[in-house]
């Protein structure tokens, strides 16, 4: 091959390598996909979420998941923005059945405004997850010490959500509301502490470890 041909071949090969590398970087930055629901207000904000017992859609149809309401539609994300130094009101529709926790210490609420959450109209600050329907999921921000827990729907119910997410309100669910106070701007990881990853050896892993399912980020913006 002539010298020019060899140079051209090398350049083409390099271009291909650069393209593949760039593609991988873009993929890694973009994955997992996280649309951002952004209910930002000035002094307070509303975040509406639901937990679904199975996402029933690709890529992970069997995984439990959170969803966030953006406008009138439910978005499959766990990223949301809230204003700094303000009250954030959460409304959670809990469709999943419950179970005990690995560490019963997380049976209680913590650092909520007013000290308790409201479950179906009743103030609750402690649930015994070892009895009854247990706890379905929880919402905790370890960095802020925040914890809210969502009792499970009855496992005997015949009206459990089994459709593709989001779950319509016609299925059995618990409605939980609570309020937290945000502080300085920053990115705060939140997660669920109930071992709800079905099929995984210790109930953790899978959706529990994957952004967009059972954990996410609360972006506190100025």
């Amino acid at each position: 091959m002539a010298k020019s041909g060899r140079i051209a071949a090398v350049l083409v090969a390099l271009a291909a390598v650069v393209a593949v590398a760039a593609g991988v970087v873009v993929y890694l930055v973009a994955y997992p996909p996280t649309a951002s629901a952004s209910p930002v207000g000035s002094a307070s904000a509303e975040v509406t979420m639901q937990t679904v017992p199975a996402y029933n859609q690709d890529p992970e149809p069997t995984w439990v998941s959170y969803m966030i309401k953006q406008g009138d539609s439910w978005v499959h994300t766990t990223m949301f923005q809230v204003p700094a130094h303000s009250l954030v009101h959460f409304t959670v529709y809990q469709f999943d059945t419950g179970s005990p926790l690995r560490n019963p210490f997380m049976n209680q609420t913590a650092n909520l405004v007013g000290g308790a959450e409201n479950v179906n109209g009743k103030d609750v600050s402690l649930i015994d997850a070892n009895v009854g329907d247990g706890v379905g999921h929880s919402f905790a921000i370890p960095a802020l010490g925040v914890s809210a827990i969502f009792p499970g729907v009855s496992g005997d119910s015949t009206n459990q959500c089994d459709v593709a997410a989001p779950c319509p309100m016609t299925f059995d669910h618990n409605t939980i509301t609570f309020t937290i106070q945000t502080g300085d701007p920053g990115s705060y990881a939140w997660q669920c502490f109930v071992p709800c990853a079905l099929g995984y050896p210790i109930g953790f892993g899978g959706p529990m470890s994957t952004l967009g399912y059972m954990n996410g980020f609360m972006e506190v913006v100025a």
Binding site: L28, V29, Y31, P32, T34, S187, A189, S209, T210, L211
Partner: peptide
């Protein structure tokens, strides 16, 4: 010192 490009899980993959 905080996440700015990759998500935590992606960072661990890398």
């Amino acid at each position: 010192p905080t996440a700015h490009l990759f998500q935590p899980g992606t960072y661990l993959e890398i």
